[in-house]
Design a protein around this nucleic acid. Sequence first.
DNA 1: CGAATAGTGTCTATGAGACAGTATTGA
DNA 2: TCAATACTGTCTCATAGACACTATTCG
Lengths: 226, 226
Amino acid sequence: MKTLEKQVDKMVVSIDPVVFSLINDKLHILLVYRDKNDEVHPDTWTLPGGVVKVDDQSLESAIERVLETKTGVKVNYSEQLGSTGGAIDPRSVWTISISYMALVDPQQTIKNAKWVDLDLMNDYYLGFKHHYDIIEKAKDRLTNKVNYSTLPIHFLGEKLTLPKLQKVYEVLLGEKIKDKSTFREKMLKTGLFIQTDDKLHEGAHRPSWIYKVEKQDIHHFSKNII
Amino acid sequence: MKTLEKQVDKMVVSIDPVVFSLINDKLHILLVYRDKNDEVHPDTWTLPGGVVKVDDQSLESAIERVLETKTGVKVNYSEQLGSTGGAIDPRSVWTISISYMALVDPQQTIKNAKWVDLDLMNDYYLGFKHHYDIIEKAKDRLTNKVNYSTLPIHFLGEKLTLPKLQKVYEVLLGEKIKDKSTFREKMLKTGLFIQTDDKLHEGAHRPSWIYKVEKQDIHHFSKNII
DNA sequence: CGAATAGTGTCTATGAGACAGTATTGA
DNA sequence: TCAATACTGTCTCATAGACACTATTCG
């Protein structure tokens, strides 16, 4: 009878999260700089990932631990993108890379990491080549979901206004929403928003109503928003 | 400086595919019976999965190898569902389970495995408890995609008729499509189908035109089919 | 010709989008 | 009162769905 030791192949499992945030109406991701003395890919940038350990209870707790220790960030929403495998590590160990995308609102203190504007990614050289693919996949998943869901709520706090939410959609879709009335109608019909008694005064014009997000459910529309 | 050996945690990575097929207008999945002498979970059923080896080039080649050696099946379409991790193995090794769903057409010879009607799953006890979750997830992903894409084409061969395709959609959605004209229009508008010169004669009634599937692209509708 | 299913033409009701209007504020 | 943005009401046009019609085959 086979014993497990003989049968098993040893592998390294790494978690690679793409952490998104909206800063000044521009989409940013979190990158970590690798020290000059780092054993692997020194003096380059990477996703704020890490290796899964046998002490982790699950992948979910592993990603929490990795993000917490590496960057101190706490995520509002996270979702697994997928896994790839191969001899991608320069030390030629067989590695499984499990990638995630996560959304946070940017009012947090971040340590040892930097918010990088996605349009300025050319200035940041990534040591692990497959991180480029993961970032592309995360962007695709994000913009795709924005089309037909209320996912962008997680870029804002619990209190929001409809013009602010519309702006977030416009930034993520890279396109102006021509008509606000349809947008408003669709959003309110989800039942996720409760109008409060407060208004947000932002200039010499009519203030916008502040809504409270009822539940953190994500509503999926049966038709694309644009 | 840290060395890799000290830093690494050893893990087992298993691939767990849910292989779907339509047999007699009923959805089936492929299950494997574990021998009485099997070290782990003897005398139970499992998904036709296996352990990733360092000789595998990638996860894609690993799933091909596993399915080929365990069941001999060749898939038309496969898609990764996600990964979970934890001490799920009875030998209490930390295991990553990477699950897939795959579609095949059932005209193949299968070895060491059985097509099981999803409605009769109660008769089959699964040794690995997390396989129940994976099967649920695969069913969800499948029925969800059927709503807004041409994925069901992969249950049929390269040549098909629109009434046959409609029947596949109805089985997968568990619902009659009331009006065929809208369904036909939507499907043809994708541009995936080319009408051939042949017809399929099936009874004492007008024959249906046979279409050829142009490319194996999956079209995503911007609105749900039903 | 009748039964049965394949395929088409047309009408209608729904709903998204365009557009123009009103509302509310600060200066 | 003007400028600026928030918000609402209405019209139109596209389109999905309902329905009825024609087409083609076998027996």
